[in-house]
Structures are given as structure tokens and as C-alpha cells.
Design a protein around this nucleic acid. Structure first.
Lengths: 174, 174
DNA sequence: ACGAGATAATCTGCCGCACAGACTATATTG
DNA sequence: CAATATAGTCTGTGCGGCAGATTATCTCGT
């Protein structure tokens, strides 16, 4: 995932093994390829691909807390701390005290951060388009739809209520 | 390989962001989920998911050298060394001198290794099946086919976008 | 109101992994 | 035969994930 995508390999052999695990392998190859391309594009961001994902989450969501960000992106919360330190240092986002819960910090993007993300989003869109250049437009749409459907259908079955917590602060009852 | 996704996080929230990068995100979520499930299954192997992929590659391919294994899986060759050390120690594979090139070692699975992999393959197949439980059988086949097609069609295509990089830099002093 | 427990963020320390570099053994080429 | 290249190993460095402790704050039961 994302992660984990620190791998760097020059001789990328797209050799599909005769294994039953076509899923994991194809997923891995594609994600690695995606990461490589997005890495090239977001090289100026403090943390490359991860940085892009964090910034995107910050901009596109209602001002999230660090914890919700970390949970959503699958990043450890202790990592999120110094990752956001860099972002603040670079003037991409700001930390604000949540007036309701003074333990929490709301992460809001600066104007500069929004601008940077806009450029990145465009570049990433191009990169993804190029990545799927082997597929017909119709096939891409189907793939995207199925992928999204499959990804959203992965219920961790543990914390079902936690999904709600990640959003905005709780206008908790009165 | 799979890289990138070394992330491990209990509270995985399947919250799709309103970002243009649906591809990378869905890919990341799915691969992370896949890794988690396969991790549970291959917990007895020396290196978890990675170990499974290595063993699968060893068994399903013609006896590969360490270098070719590393290249295929996107693992560093220095890592491959001690990873295979463990495998040999556990009696899963053997290192044999290549009679043609005495620098190289051919990695061949032991009978035990084959047996272990057979069990793992079955378990992984079940895990993948469960992972895609949200999709109809027809949809799964299509997804798998498109995925494989997209993964095999990834051309390296190096120098193209290097020029775009310099434009979006935030004040990165560090 | 008070104390017990939970939660957000931070800080510290450990460990695994990627990566660069050196080294040995062998192969290839001039 | 010398020079160079390659397979594998070993060593050291740095980053990132992760567990644990700490501080500040919230929540709940009494």
C-alpha cells in the first residue's frame, strides 16, 4: 500500500508466475508501478507518495484530526506526528486546536498547500492515465469501478462504529 | 515486493476520499487487506507474506538464482541472502551450485517446502476468495483478468516526466 | 465535584528492511 | 594472462513501523 512501497528495483520483470495468487501479485505489480510514477511526480513533497496521500486527505476531507488521518491512511500515529511537522514547516498545512476537544488538532491546508495539491492531482491523474494505457477506455472504467467496489467492501468486521469516528468531530448529543 | 505496503494498522477504515486518485487508493486498500489476510495465514513462515511470495516463486519457477529471485520480487539482493538463510535453516529450500556457473546458486524447494507451499496456496486461495466476497463470480473473473492485463502491460517508460518535477516545490529547506 | 479510565498527541527506544559499499569467488573478454 | 564483470556475502547507515511511557484533556460513574 501504499505503502509500503519503498521498493526500488531496476530490472522490473513483469513475469506472471503460475501461482494461484494472481490477485496479490497483480495488485503488487500495479501498486508498485503506480507508486514509482507518483513518486516521480511528487518528489518535491516532504515524503513523496505518502506525502501526497496525506495532503490529499487533508484537503479533500473536512479538517481531520491526526488520529483520523493516520487511521484512514494506515499510517502509524507516531509517524503522522513528525510527518505533519515537516508539512507545517513547509507551509503546506496548519495545526489548529479543536475548540471542542482541546486534546485534538485539526489539520487544515494552507492556500499554498491547496495549490500544490491541485498541481499534484493533475499530474497524478496523467500518471494514472498513462499507467492504464494498455487498457481500452471501457476496460479502465470497469476496472476502476470493480476495484473501488472491492476496496469498499472490505469490512474489517471489528470496529464498525470506528468508521464514523474518523469524520468530523462529534456534535455529540446534548 | 509488494512493497510499499509494509504498513500495518488495525483500524482500517474503508473511507474513499473524493480525490482524483481512485486508482492508487483502491489499489492500496486492497493490497493492504490482502497482505493482512495472507499474513495471518503464513504466520509460520520465516518472513510472513514475503516468505510466501519467495517460496511460491521458488516452487513455481524453474530453479531460479538468488539474483533472479530478488529481481522478480523486487527485494534487495542483500536481503535475499539472509532471507534464504532462514529458509534453508527451516528445511524449506536448498542452495545448489549451478554446474554451469559456479558463482550462482540455484534455489530448489525441498519436499517439505513443496508441501508447505501447497497448504499455503490453498489457504491463500481461500483468503483471496473471501477478500472478494463482495463481488459476484462474474465480476471477480473480470477484475482478475483486467488486473492481470494491466499489470503485464506496464512499460517502464523512464524519461518522460522528469521535466515536470521542478515546478511545484514548496520551500523545502531541510 | 471528584477520581478512574479513555483518548489525542508527543517522545523514546528497538527492530526490520532498503540501500550503498567492500570483499571473495568465478566467469568472460581482450 | 590481465582486466573487467557478475553472483553472493558481509558491514554499516538511515528511514520507517511499532510498542511503551508521558502529558494534557475528555468522559463517565459515583
Amino acid at each position: 500500500m501504499v505503502e509500503g512501497v519503498t521498493t526500488r528495483d531496476p530490472a522490473g520483470l513483469p513475469a506472471p508466475p503460475a501461482s494461484p495468487s494472481t490477485l496479490g501479485w497483480s495488485l503488487g505489480v500495479l501498486l508498485r508501478e503506480w507508486s514509482d510514477r507518483v513518486e516521480k511526480v511528487s518528489r518535491d513533497l516532504p515524503h513523496g507518495v505518502r506525502g501526497y496521500q496525506v495532503l490529499a486527505a487533508v484537503v479533500h476531507d473536512a479538517p481531520p484530526t491526526q488520529a483520523s488521518l493516520a487511521a484512514r491512511l494506515g499510517i502509524d500515529r507516531t509517524v503522522m506526528t513528525y510527518l505533519l511537522d515537516k508539512f507545517v514547516e513547509c507551509g503546506l498545512v496548519e495545526r489548529r486546536q479543536d475548540p471542542v476537544d482541546r486534546r485534538a488538532r485539526r489539520i487544515v491546508p494552507t492556500g499554498h498547500g491547496r495549490g500544490v495539491l491541485a498541481d499534484l492531482d493533475a499530474a497524478v491523474a496523467r500518471a494514472e492515465d498513462e499507467l492504464l494505457s494498455g487498457l481500452a477506455p471501457e476496460e479502465r472504467r470497469v476496472l476502476l469501478a470493480l476495484l473501488e467496489h472491492a476496496a469498499s467492501g472490505t469490512a474489517p468486521d471489528e470496529d464498525r462504529c470506528a468508521a464514523v469516528a474518523g469524520t468530523i468531530g462529534p456534535p455529540r448529543h446534548a
